[in-house]
């Protein structure tokens, strides 16, 4: 509600302001690209930016599952791990070209997403959350026990193939694909499932199919992000993909707004750069994250952007604000309706 107030306060200038911000962001992105290309941005900072792109991919793909489809997954780190290990092994053992490795990492993650999604997506809400959490932990335990993954010692010597530009290209492709999915009729179906699964089913939407689809696509991009991560760090071990990692991605999505791609991107950038800027307070990072989660839920559960996108602020939005008393509001007044 406070957000609406702020919007109203800016009144007619709101759209202009949005344009100024958008142009500044575009200029900033260009400047960063030039800076990295010229070497004006040093090695360390470039690394931080690569992580920012990877976090954007993770957040946007998790948002497809959690935000748009409303299926609460806590296993994103598990898919990331699958992609990281698959790609790492492909590079070490076969030394295939990087784009091929990325695609295979994504495909295998998607396949596992399908395999996990088909049975577990029949569960709802908090049960699904626990089942996906369990999946993530099982992946970690398997990685700890397999010989080929190096067990607890991890997998080292992965060629550093991820550059700022490859991460950027993959992230932009991810954003474009997921934006298009969300805007298509498939995306409408996903949002319908989020709003009211039973009503969606009654309208003839094959809910299981759509849920599994969203889940596998999200898993695929998480796998690709994992592959980028592996070829950036050059070393991976099961500890990089714990439940804590899933929570970090979740914090990004929730902060940006469940159901806003713009929000996920902004939050991913903020939550990657900010901890680096506050390095001296590194040990307080998780304390801040957890307070952020609790505070957001208590004060602003819709996150920074709610379900709004940049286009909505620029005046090109296709999503209109829901009128009072619409299904959405009734659902949120009834505590989600699924008790």
């Amino acid at each position: 509600m406070r957000g609406e107030m702020a919007v109203r306060r800016f009144g007619p200038y709101r759209q202009t302001l949005a344009w100024v911000v958008a142009v500044l962001a575009a200029v900033g992105l260009l400047a960063v690209n030039v800076g990295v290309y010229n070497g004006m941005i040093d090695f360390y900072l470039t690394g931080v930016l690569v992580i920012a792109w990877i976090n954007i991919i993770l957040a946007v793909s998790l948002n497809l599952i959690n935000g748009f489809t409303g299926q609460f997954s806590l296993g994103h780190a598990g898919f990331m791990a699958v992609g990281a290990y698959v790609s790492g092994l492909l590079t070490i053992l076969l030394n295939w070209p990087f784009p091929v490795v990325l695609i295979i990492a994504g495909l295998i993650s998607a396949l596992i997403g399908l395999f996990i999604g088909l049975p577990t997506l029949r569960l709802r809400g908090d049960y699904l959350a626990i089942a996906t959490l369990g999946f993530g932990e099982i992946v970690r335990v398997i990685l700890l026990n397999l010989k080929i993954t190096g067990g607890p010692r991890g997998l080292g010597g992965i060629a550093p193939k991820t550059t700022f530009f490859s991460a950027e290209i993959v992230a932009l492709i991810t954003i474009i694909i997921i934006t298009n999915i969300v805007r298509s009729s498939h995306g409408r179906a996903l949002v319908a499932i989020r709003e009211d699964e039973m009503a969606a089913e009654a309208m003839g939407i094959n809910t299981t199919r759509y849920k599994v689809m969203a889940f596998s696509i999200g898993a695929a991009f998480a796998g690709i992000a994992g592959a980028l991560f592996a070829h950036h760090q050059m070393f991976i071990d099961p500890r990089s993909f714990t439940f804590q990692r899933s929570i970090e991605i979740l914090v990004i999505v929730v902060l940006g707004g469940l159901g806003s791609i713009t929000g996920s991107i902004v939050a991913a950038i903020v939550l990657t750069i900010l901890p680096e800027a506050l390095r001296g307070m590194a040990q307080y990072r998780m304390v801040v994250y957890s307070l952020l989660l609790i505070g957001l839920m208590l004060i602003r559960p819709q996150g920074l952007f709610g379900t709004k996108e940049l286009q909505d602020f620029l005046g090109y939005g296709i999503t209109k604000a829901l009128p009072k008393g619409s299904a959405r509001q009734v659902a949120s007044n009834n505590g989600g309706g699924d008790r």
């Binding site: 409303g70 609460f72 998780m286 994250y289 839920m297 559960p301 008790r339």
Partner: peptide
């Protein structure tokens, strides 16, 4: 959060858990 969505409550619970741990 008693009257908000169950997912909001679940996220809060995760937050509380991480807060206590850290």
């Amino acid at each position: 959060l008693r009257n908000s969505t169950r997912i909001a409550a679940l996220i809060t619970a995760i937050g509380v858990s991480f807060l206590i741990q850290n």
